[in-house]
């Protein structure tokens, strides 16, 4: 079983699955909070249209979890707001 790291736990995936699908299969429904109301979000459209499933992968925020194929070396993290809070001045 191959796995990637998500918020300090291991999430299994099978070959060809997207990050979003693997998270849903592991019972994770949300991995992002919204900018204004801090509401949880996960997959909605599943095909790259809605951008609801944005997530931080390997320190790059705002990637569509429903499009990015899962890989064993990935470090996936819950994204807060715009995902770039560390750049705020």
């Amino acid at each position: 079983m191959t796995e990637f790291e998500f918020d300090e736990r291991d999430v299994p995936f099978t070959d060809g699955q997207t990050v979003g699908a693997a998270l849903v299969a592991a019972g994770v429904r949300s991995w992002r909070t919204t900018r204004r109301e801090s509401r949880p979000r996960g997959v909605f459209c599943g095909i790259g249209v809605c951008f609801d499933c944005l997530v931080t992968i390997d320190d790059v925020p705002n990637q569509r979890a429903c499009l990015v194929p899962a890989a064993e070396t990935m470090v996936v993290r819950t994204q807060e707001g715009d995902g770039r809070g560390h750049l705020a001045v």
């Binding site: 715009d82 770039r84 809070g85 705020a88």
Partner: peptide
Amino acid sequence: TEPLPRIVR
């Protein structure tokens, strides 16, 4: 751009 925190003042 995408929505960002304040990067440019």
